[in-house]
Design a protein around this nucleic acid. Sequence first.
DNA 1: TACGAAACTGACACGAGCGTCATCGATGAG
DNA 2: CTCATCGATGACGCTCGTGTCAGTTTCGTA
Lengths: 194, 194
Amino acid sequence: MGKAERRQQILTVARDVFARRGYHAAKIDDIVAAAGIARGTFYLYFEDKRAIFEEIVDRTMARLGMVIERVDVASPKSVAEQVRDQIRRIFHILLEDRATTKILLSDALGVDPAFDRKLQSFYDEMAKQLEQSLRDGQALGIVRQGDAHLMSWLTMGALKEALSQIVQRGAEYDEDTLVEGTFAYFMGGYLRVA
Amino acid sequence: MGKAERRQQILTVARDVFARRGYHAAKIDDIVAAAGIARGTFYLYFEDKRAIFEEIVDRTMARLGMVIERVDVASPKSVAEQVRDQIRRIFHILLEDRATTKILLSDALGVDPAFDRKLQSFYDEMAKQLEQSLRDGQALGIVRQGDAHLMSWLTMGALKEALSQIVQRGAEYDEDTLVEGTFAYFMGGYLRVA
DNA sequence: TACGAAACTGACACGAGCGTCATCGATGAG
DNA sequence: CTCATCGATGACGCTCGTGTCAGTTTCGTA
C-alpha cells in the first residue's frame, strides 16, 4: 500500500472511530486496531490525535465553505430559488458523509480551547455572510425588517439542529422533504395568528 | 462552614470552572484550588467529577422543565401571547445563570455515552411537546401545515443557537429585543418573495 | 540473489490525573 | 483538662493512554 493510500485509509477509519466514540473517548489504540496497523505506524503519518482530528474537520469545513454562495439579485434565478438551492447544497454535502458531519456538529466542541476558537470563527464567517445577505435583502424589501444578526444565528441554529438530529440517530429523512420543509420554515415561519 | 454551605460552595465554583474550561479540560485540582479546599475534601461531598457535573446539569434541566408549558387554546391569553411568554421564560431562565447555560449547551456533549443519551432524551422530550403543540395548532389552523417534527427541531435549534452565541461570548443582548426578534422569526420567517 | 531503503512493529518509559486513606486539628461535651 | 467526634488534609499509589525508538520485515533495484 502506497503512502498516500495508507494515509487515506487511516483518515477514513479514524473518522469512523471519532464518529462512533467522540473525540475524547476515541483512543489511538481504537484507530490503529480498526486500521489493522501498529501503534507506531500511526505516528508515521500523523503528528498526534489532535492533528488527525483537525485534518478531518478541516476537510469538511473546506467542502462546506465551497458550496456557500452569496445570493445574487441580478441572477436570472429567482432569489427564492437561490435560497432553496443553497439549503439543498448544504444538506446534500453534509448528508453525503454523515460520520464527518456528526463529528463536525457534535464532537468538535470541547476538544481544546484553540479548536473551539477555530470552530467558532468558521461559524462566524458563515453567519456574517448570511447576515449580509439578509441586510441586502432587507434593503430590497425581500427580507422582513428586523435584527439581521439575530436572524442569521437563528437560521444557522435551525440548520445545525436538523442536521444533528438526522446524523446522530441514523434517521433516514428524505432529502427533498427536508429541503422543502426547511425552505418553507425560513420563508414563512409557522404561526398563523395575530 | 456547615456541610450544606460547603457543598453549595463547591457546586458553585465547579460550575464556574466547567464553564470556563469545559468538562474534559476541567481538572478536580482546578475545582479544589478555586474552592480553597484540599483534594480529599472534594471527595467527601461528591462521588467524582462526573457526579458533580451531572448534578449541575440536572438542576438546570429541572428548572428549564418547569417553565415549559403546553399552549392552551382555551386560555384567555391569545396563542401568540402564550408563545411569546414561553420564549421569554426560556430565555429568562437560561440567561439568569449563563455559566450553567454554557455548560448545558456546549460542554454537556461528549462527556460520556450515558450522559449523551440523557441529554438527548431531555431535548427529545421538549421537542415532542413542541411537536404536539404544533400539530394541535395545525388542526386549528393557527399553525402552517407541514412537517411538524421537522419544524419542532428547527425551532429548538434556533433557540439553542441564539442562547449559545450569547452565552459563549458574554455578549450583552437586550432580553426584550431577543424575545421579540425570535418571536417574529417564528411567526413569519423572513423571506418575502415568491 | 543481494543489499539498501523505506515501511512497519510493539514493548516500553513516561506523565497526567484520579481516588484513597492514614493522619491532623478543631470543636464541644463531660 | 481530656477525650471523642468529625470535617479536612495532601502525599501516595495506581491506572490509563500517549509517543518513542530500536529492531524487524518488505520492497525495489541492480
